[in-house]
Amino acid sequence: MTTNTNDELAQIFEGWSSTVGKPTLKDNARMTTRGVDVFYGEKQAIFGVDLDIGKNEVLAMIGPSGCGKSTFLRTLNRMNDTIDICRVKGDIHLDGDNIYDKKMDVVNLRARVGMVFQKPNPFPKSIYDNVAYGPRIHGLVTRKAELDEIVETALQKASIWNEVKDRLDQPATGLSGGQQQRLCIARTIAVSPEVILMDEPCSALDPIATARIEELIAELSENFTIAIVTHSMQQAARVSSRTAYFHLGRLVEVGATDKIFTAPEHRLTEDYITGRFG
């Protein structure tokens, strides 16, 4: 941080009330979050975030590292449940269902809100079994032919079918990094989720592989709602329709992507996208 001392930040966040821009959507919202706080033990990581994710939109979340964007993303399909000391407050709804409700089943939730991780993490199984994993555990198919069709469709949709169709029974760990990440996307869409969360999906990939994933995100947005966390502003600009800027656990500004990158309203957002820190 070059322009903001901690004192200045404290001033900015003192009596923090609202996010600049329009975090909420009138209709068309697939997921809504209201007043979300996240704590790791005693430490608060997310402060009162209100944010909606619309149907079939690509929402990018950007911000300096440690700003809580990944933490926030992980609350959306309750991946934070696997961390003992993590607590989440506030309301998060998926299609009107409160996902932190006691009645909400986390297994079911994660089948509806899929996730793609920073590092490609194919299971040590064959390519076919990786994609078939989700449908199998959820018992989504009744016949082998149906499963074959789903696997093929998912791989096609993840634009990797042509590369792997002749070696579906080979271990997925033998694929290149970019292929592995597309396989992980195929694995996620094979359970037909409503929302796909992507946590810096290209950070471990080379530029060519990154470009292919970015194309893929654009195609997927026709059918899925996508929230993507990225450390690359250019990537956010290329793939998303809306962008949310996070800073020190707060959602500072939300808006249409081109507006955020051309005419940000908040000073922090401006400082970030003009490269004064990050």
């Binding site: 198919v141 149906e146 949709k157």
Partner: peptide, 10 residues
């Protein structure tokens, strides 16, 4: 889009 049939049906 037609490729998505299987997953849409799903």
């Amino acid at each position: 889009t037609n490729q998505l049939n299987a997953i849409e049906r799903l």
